[in-house]
Amino acid sequence: MRITLNVWRQKNARDAGGFEKYDCPNVSEDMSFLEMLDVVNEDLIAKGRDPIAFDHDCREGICGMCGFMISGVAHGPESGTTVCQLHMRKFKDGDELWLEPWRAKGFPIIRDLTVDRSALDRIVASGGFVSVHTGSAIDGNAIPVPKPNADLAMDAAQCIGCGACVAACPNASASLFTSAKISHLALLPQGQPERDRRAINMVERMNAEGFGHCTNIGECEAVCPKEIKIENIARMNRDYLCASFKKRPEVKRVED
């Protein structure tokens, strides 16, 4: 099949960037989208031109490295799928596609389709952890966890941090990501000691990274390759609200 690609090319963060057109006459429908780009890149390299930069790692939909917009939809037209797991059979012969990087202030462009998503790492670092004791390992079933909670926590923990939710949101909000990271710990007994602090710190970090607010419209949920639900955002809001009202002034350390 024949596919025409319009790819966003941008040398670095300061370059203005623009679309370039590529004609791909021999695309096999068994290729994944990234394999198709590999073929385009081999061709570009053979011609002595710069290959298209795009992020990828596992290519099996579990690491969260890949992702860009395909004709206005994060990760392309197949729902619940990362772009590395998207196959060319989902497109028609003669299709013209537009590839763009995630666009958000919190995701500065590194080159072409790759963006810097370390803002998401900083959100996790601000509160996405639990305290554990460092003695001998405790018995596996010592802490009872209700099955429904374990399931919900697992659903939230599926988030691979690809950033598609930010990319799809009209406000470039990172609420789905942050709420998934808050939820998968808040739903488990091990996450309770830091629950309030976690909600406050992660939400404030999310705001400080320059992501927008959530208008509850659900575009993030529609593109999430792991099908994380916006119910998690409600849980984050609830935790943040309660934590803000329960918060007491911290005891200040006396400087010596």
Binding site: W98, E219, A222
Partner: peptide, 23 residues
């Protein structure tokens, strides 16, 4: 905040799930 959060707009951006009311 929302205007600042996406300084460069997409050339193409499809809405999949949001209602006209919400937008």
């Amino acid at each position: 905040l929302s205007n600042e959060a996406r300084p460069v707009q997409y050339k193409m951006h499809k809405h999949l799930q949001s209602t006209a009311a919400s937008k």
